[in-house]
Simulated assay, not measured.
Amino acid sequence: MDKQEYLDLSKYTRIVIKVGSAIITNNYDIDEDKINQIAQDVSYLRKQNKEVLIVSSGAVACGMKVLNIKKKPDSVPIKQALASIGQPYLMSIYEKAFAQFSTNISQVLISIEDILSRKRFLNAKNTFEALFGLKVVPIVNENDSVAIKELMFGDNDSLSSHILNLIKGNLLIILTDVDGVYDKDPKLHKDSTLIEIVTQEEAWLKNLKGKSKLGEGGIVSKVKAAFIASKGGKTAVIINGKRKNPIKNLFLDKTFPKTIFLPKSYVKSKIYWINNCMSLGKLYIDYGAFESIKNRKGLLAKGIKAIEGVFLKGNVVDIMLDNKRVAKGIVNY
């Protein structure tokens, strides 16, 4: 597609919507009206023959509400406990909201191990395909309650970019509390300008700052997730989720404020996965092996000089030559 076709949102058929804690909370309380709006917007998209998946934060915030805790704790075990308390409550609100539109939802908790392992990645993909076939709206969250700190996505923005590839989606919509990406913080600078279209990772984007009160992300993680999507050949849009029916209006109103990240070119799902998957080890190779890789002949054991890290079949590793990464690949044995 050319630039104008990418800008035509009506062409996208499988959509991931990322909903952050800041969007569905209001003064440390759960904003059920906003969740109702999201359900209404998704119902509208489904009537346009679009398949929709939601990546939703908010479990910790819901746990805080249940226990009447006003300040987000710093302790990882406490936050994990709050997530386990809040997740059922969060899903009950979503279930009630979607029931108004005769829509069934499902809960899918994903851990980073489900992404790191190619086998588990493909198993999850099959589950989502089955859910779409059953006309269900999957609602995804990280499996915070049992995740190890060193093996966590850290924020659902990152998770959403991986889920987009996992389900072979073509549009990622990220909801935040501003109208998109600005050249300066709009909350501090009245002369800030909304960047409407991004086609490449410009230097000023790397200097962005900002983090939400209840969530783990912020504008920085949202821009990073958008770039992961666009570099993977998919379109990403950052919009203000605090506006009324933001998703529906994004599709109906061409003047709706947004920042859209346009893809450069199509990337195969497997390549997208390898490029963005955490490497669990390093293989140090000789020049003969490097020539074999360049000629797409694969890597044999005899070309490996040293191994670093702990990994299994199906994991991604870095390929090193003279202490420099020259490639990434999947371990086959």
Rank of each mutant, 00 (worst) to 15 (best):
S21Q: 03
G288K: 13
D31H: 11
I163K: 00
L283A: 09
I30H: 07
I247H: 04
L82S: 03
K65A: 11
N276C: 01
K211F: 09
K71M: 06
D322Y: 13
Y287V: 12
L164N: 02
K47E: 15
L131R: 11
N126E: 06
V55N: 10
I174E: 02
P88D: 07
V16I: 15
G314A: 01
S111V: 06
K34Q: 06
S92M: 12
K47V: 04
D322T: 02
V237E: 04
I228G: 02
F132G: 05
D183G: 11
Y333K: 12
D2L: 06
K187F: 12
I174A: 08
N245E: 11
I195V: 13
K254A: 14
I285C: 08
K184G: 06
R118H: 13
G215F: 05
K222E: 11
N323G: 03
P88I: 11
S102T: 11
F256E: 09
N26K: 15
I30N: 08
L122A: 07
D155S: 08
K242T: 04
I112V: 14
V137T: 13
I285G: 00
L164I: 08
Q4C: 00
V42S: 06
N141R: 04
V108P: 01
P77Y: 04
V42Y: 08
Y94C: 06
S158C: 08
E291Y: 04
N49Q: 15
I148E: 12
I112E: 12
D31G: 04
Q40V: 05
A289W: 02
I35C: 13
N249P: 05
A203F: 10
V331L: 09
R118D: 02
C277L: 09
G218I: 05
K248T: 05
N249W: 01
N249Y: 08
K135W: 07
E150C: 07
E5N: 10
E129H: 03
I228T: 13
R325F: 00
E216A: 10
K70F: 02
R46P: 01
K224D: 15
